[in-house]
Design a protein around this nucleic acid. Structure first.
Lengths: 251, 251
DNA sequence: GAAACACTACGGTCTTGGCCGAAGTATTCG
DNA sequence: CGAATACTTCGGCCAAGACCGTAGTGTTTC
């Protein structure tokens, strides 16, 4: 029955800005050194060291020492999911200005989400795949159709990972677009493919991705995606009605 | 790029023991009054009032006033998922004693998880359904098979919810068993059915469920579940090897 | 072996925020 | 209308913990 305190302990750990910055920086699955994490979190190395010790002790980070430096990464995908979930809640929570995002425009456009793509591009890809009946996908689950299986075969995505009868197509709620995009092994395979073919490139020190010219044509011919590729604020989509937070429900 | 601070804000909110207790108490989807929440969180009403204001402002709780009292509930299933995720991370984090759980034995056996069942029973049900090829389920996703569809039809679960082509079978990682159980609309339907037929009953002021005699036979004949029903500590399952938290990975 | 580097441990300062007593505002009941 | 109930606001107390300066330990480089 002491589930509350356990939750609180972990949440309090994530609840410090410096630590949250560290975890955010690791959300794409990279491994970073203590110094790098000190820098991104905006605190002195001594302070960062303390934070990192706490996060490791709690099992949120995995640590590997190599010579005189220590490499940290998220201990498991579970941690990444919690962080992603917190982003979602943080976004739809306060019904405040959603569009004062400015700075994050590149992130909103395309970024990595642990091991797959997120952002407008990723949502567009997912939408397109659903529209063509290659996958079924909503907030609660996803699955590859037979048509989808042949599509991805032809597309060149390695589906051997998917051998057996494993379900490997799952949704991940995009915190910037507030719609599900494709995660799981299939999502990871698409990102892998995109990086492999230089469709997208990592932005240094960021989870952001930029779409290359090759990517523009590749995404267009493969998925038939055009509109979502323009990165300038063609924020056509109405910001959805702001559900009042103080919902009156029949009790 | 300010995703860190946003995460931190929400996490810090959950990171206070009193507030975490409140959220935990609401995890089964109930609506509770401010007084009740003050009681479960172990603080004075004035203090609780402040906490509840913060949680509502942040959009974690939805509030309905009715006469002189205020009813609170989780603002969305997203919040419940974050809490469940935190439980999972809290469990596998510190590789400490997993079996000093004592008090929570009832919870480990069967409980609600927002709108569906969790605990040994729920994992057993999911396992059985997978074994009989009625569903596919792993940590990343789930799906109902054709055989499963007819099974649930016969079983009497209302699948009309599942109309269209919606995917509605999703996994939820059980923090006590560390294996996925069935969530989503299908999981909710099973819980609904079980409550409807008096297979299980809520334990007052708790998320725990007790299995009635009717439930024992119902679960046995319907799902073929026997072993998992004995609630005495037949903790046969070895506690899994304790993966050292400081994993050395090739960097 | 000395110097530079990466990280950790310790100690003291200072802010944040949780806590409750007391008092104040709605709502219901007799 | 007054008392009881449910909740909120205010103010002061207090402890937890984030922060960095200083001083270490271990590792690499020259």
């Amino acid at each position: 029955m002491d589930t509350g305190p356990k939750i609180a302990q972990v949440a309090a750990l994530i609840g410090d800005p410096a630590r949250a910055n560290m975890l955010s920086a690791l959300m794409d699955g990279r491994t970073l050194t203590a110094s790098e994490l000190a820098y991104v979190s905006g605190v002195a190395p001594q302070t960062a060291s303390g934070h990192l010790a706490k996060l490791s002790d709690a099992g949120l980070l995995a640590l590997a020492r190599q010579g005189r430096r220590r490499y940290f990464r998220l201990a498991s995908p579970h941690v990444a999911r919690v962080l992603e979930g917190l982003m979602v809640v943080a976004q739809d929570g306060p019904a405040r200005q959603r569009n004062l995002w400015r700075g994050g425009e590149t992130l909103r456009h395309a970024r990595t989400c642990y091991d797959h793509m997120a952002g407008r591009i990723a949502v567009a890809i997912a939408d397109r795949l659903v529209q063509q009946s290659f996958i079924l996908l909503d907030e609660d689950g996803g699955q590859l159709t037979d048509a989808g299986r042949s599509f991805f075969d032809e597309f060149g995505v390695d589906l051997r990972l998917a051998s057996k009868r494993r379900v490997f197509c799952r949704p991940c709620l995009d915190w910037s677009e507030r719609r599900p995009h494709l995660a799981g092994a299939l999502g990871a395979a698409i990102l892998h493919h995109a990086l492999e073919h230089d469709w997208v490139e990592h932005v240094r020190d960021s989870r952001a991705l930029v779409v290359t010219p090759a990517g523009v044509s590749g995404l267009a011919t493969t998925f038939g995606i055009e509109g979502a590729l323009s990165r300038d604020g063609s924020e056509g989509q109405v910001a959805s009605l702001s559900r009042g937070r103080v919902a009156v429900f029949s009790g």
